Amino acid sequence: MSIKLIASDLDATFLKNDKTFNEVLFQEVLDKLHAQGGQFVVATGNHVQKVRDYFKNFPGQYQLIANNGAEVILDGELMHVWSVSADVPAVVDNLANKYKAELQLGVSFVAANKAFMIVKNPNDEHLDFAKKYFENLTLINSVTEINEPILKVSLVLPRLEYEFMREIKLLLGNKVHVTTSGYGAIDIVNPNVNKANALTYIAETLNVKPSEIMAFGDGLNDLEMLEYVGQPFAMTNSDEELFQHDFARSVTDNDNDGVLKTILEKL
């Protein structure tokens, strides 16, 4: 069975722990893959600019699923976004006021290539970090200043994230999907957002069957994607939960080029 698409998560999967990867080996993988008509897909929770920084030496050589599946970029063009419904930002912002004392910095609203933030607890150190993390960050006073689709609403609420998540689900129900990446960070997205749906969009656009796709992941936000593809690999350093599923294992961990070595063995 020839492989037409190979999709990989970044953090703790494709990237080493120091956020680098073996560029020489990656070029070898790309050359072999492209020679047989295949393509490489980066599938990450990171935003677009962050990915472009990581892959600055490989322009035009990969496709991209960003923000955990909220954005699909094909051949450098934004092809599809899954945004939250228009009333969501105000509801989240309003509830955040109730938790203001515990809230770290404020509430962020991420659009396709920029982000907005309402600061509720000013803190220079947190703000500096946010400016590095979010692409084109604009500080605003009210959600009424946002005039474009929002893909993700994020906030950091140490100690009370589960209470907040319960309340926001009561308020918005199945209008949103609410997740936490731990450490009190909460993401609120369109209920149809996950890496599998984004990868399905790419596969259908490029006329590729799930059986012709290989994918790599290490965490629960990779689960749907791994279940969707014909050749799923869980990293040897994965979240224990992933090992409960019947996925093959990478030949080694993320710090030892596990993704690239597994691909070269299988191609």
Rank of each mutant, 00 (worst) to 15 (best):
H34P: 00
N68I: 01
T262C: 09
A86I: 02
T200V: 11
M1F: 12
Y99N: 01
K209Y: 14
K132L: 14
I202H: 09
N94D: 10
M165F: 07
S108H: 14
M79L: 11
K169G: 01
L242P: 15
V193R: 12
N121E: 03
S8C: 03
D187L: 08
P59V: 10
E28A: 04
N123S: 07
V48M: 06
V48Y: 09
V193D: 02
E240Q: 13
V29Q: 05
I118G: 03
S8V: 02
L157K: 05
L172K: 14
N141M: 01
L155R: 08
W82Q: 14
Q36F: 11
F109A: 00
L264I: 13
V193L: 07
Q63M: 06
Q27V: 04
P59H: 09
F40T: 08
A96N: 06
I146A: 05
K32L: 10
L64I: 07
V176K: 10
D239C: 05
L5E: 05
P149N: 02
E163Y: 02
G230N: 11
L206N: 08
H245A: 00
L25G: 01
L220H: 10
V41D: 02
N46K: 15
T200A: 03
A112E: 11
L137H: 12
E204C: 03
S238R: 13
F247D: 05
A234V: 12
N194Y: 12
K266L: 09
V91W: 06
D257I: 04
D222T: 09
N256A: 07
V42E: 03
E212S: 12
G219A: 04
T252P: 01
A66Y: 11
V176T: 11
I202S: 04
K120E: 01
N97K: 15
T13M: 07
F233T: 10
T179Y: 08
K16F: 13
S2K: 15
A43V: 09
T13F: 13
V251I: 15
E167V: 05
Y228D: 01
T180D: 04
D253T: 12
L170P: 09
K56P: 00
L157Y: 09
E77N: 07
V229N: 08
M225R: 10
D75A: 05
F216W: 04
L95H: 10
E212Y: 14
T200G: 00
Q63L: 13
Y133M: 06
L25S: 04
E265K: 15
V72K: 13
N207F: 11
N256Y: 15
L172P: 10
M117C: 09
N123K: 12
L10Q: 01
L15A: 03
A196V: 05
G106Q: 09
